[in-house]
Write a protein that binds this DNA or RNA. Structure first.
Length: 270
DNA sequence: AAACAGTTCAACCGCACCGAG
DNA sequence: CCTCGGTGCGGTTGAACTGTT
């Protein structure tokens, strides 16, 4: 190909934009498989791609990497996103480091399309205390319940175990770190780099619900912002019925149901 | 079946940071 | 120091898809 040799100045090579074709994907995948990642500008040229290095990098990281998890964000991942976002804000790449197989772009899109959408529906800002309270006091516990229900664990109420110090345990030093990695460099974090490490995904996400249900008061408060007690303004764990909460754990309906709960909750806050 | 509205997500853009020279 | 190329990040856009009327 003419452009490959770049005999006539880079400017004359018309760079492509927009959606990637199968042929381009193949070129990129094959080139990376043979030469590895990095040096994206030269990679783009040498692979014969009429793309910028940035575009190649993005396509590889967000779509072509073999270790990506495809499919819907699971409740455990949602919980992790909520928790990490409450801690770090819009530090998507940092959050993604703790979510093996997920990209910062994916997480960011999830946040914008799902979380921000619901904040808008509730007529409050995602950064407002009001919305954060909704997330902490309703969404996260409900996610935990959903996770527990899905895992077929005992019928012990999430709220009860969360608020019962006798069942709580501070995370051990060697646990998968949810917060800022103390000694771990990005390279040594739990980012899954090969499919053989897929089981680590389970370890990582499963530990999230464990954190919420096996913690001591201080850790839980620090992590979720909940007090060591269930907030007075909230219904007690057993009071869901009186709120008209019949949590539908059906995949399609539960989230919508959740947001109607929030409306009710917000009204009671006023 | 068609038109329209709403949603999702891949991809782009601009900026900031970093290391090499 | 300064410049420059490479890279990474967060925000934004728009095409494609899905649901509704």
């Amino acid at each position: 190909m003419e452009f490959n040799g770049r005999a006539r100045g880079e400017d004359e090579v018309e760079l492509r934009k927009g959606s990637w074709t199968v042929e381009e994907d193949l070129l990129l995948v094959n080139y990376v498989a043979e030469h590895g990642e990095g040096r994206w500008d030269s990679l783009a040229r040498e692979a014969g791609l009429k793309r910028t290095g940035k575009s190649c990098r993005l396509r590889w990281l967000n779509y072509l990497r073999p270790d990506l998890r495809r499919g819907n964000i699971t409740p455990e991942e949602q919980l992790l996103i909520l928790e990490l976002h409450s801690r770090w804000g819009n530090r998507w790449s940092k959050i993604a480091q703790h979510m093996p197989g997920r990209t910062d772009n994916e997480i960011k899109n999830y946040w914008r399309t799902r979380v921000q959408k619901h904040a808008k529906q509730l007529r409050c800002d995602v950064d407002s205390k009001r919305f954060k309270d909704v997330v902490r006091h309703l969404w996260m516990p409900r996610l935990l319940e959903r996770i527990r229900a899905a895992s077929g664990s005992s019928a012990v109420s999430t709220h009860q175990s969360v608020n019962d110090p006798s069942t709580c345990k501070r995370p051990e030093e060697g646990d998968v770190e949810l917060g800022e990695a103390k000694s771990a460099s990005p390279e040594s974090s739990n980012i899954v780099r090969s499919s053989s490490e897929a089981s680590e995904v389970q370890v990582s996400t499963a530990s999230v619900s464990d954190r919420f249900t096996n913690c001591d008061d201080a850790w839980f408060q620090e992590t979720t912002g909940f007090g060591a007690y269930w907030p007075e303004t909230l219904p007690s764990p057993g009071a869901c019925d009186s709120w008209g909460w019949s949590m539908d754990l059906d995949q399609s309906g539960w989230e919508e149901n959740l947001w109607s709960m929030e409306d009710t909750w917000l009204q009671q806050q006023i």
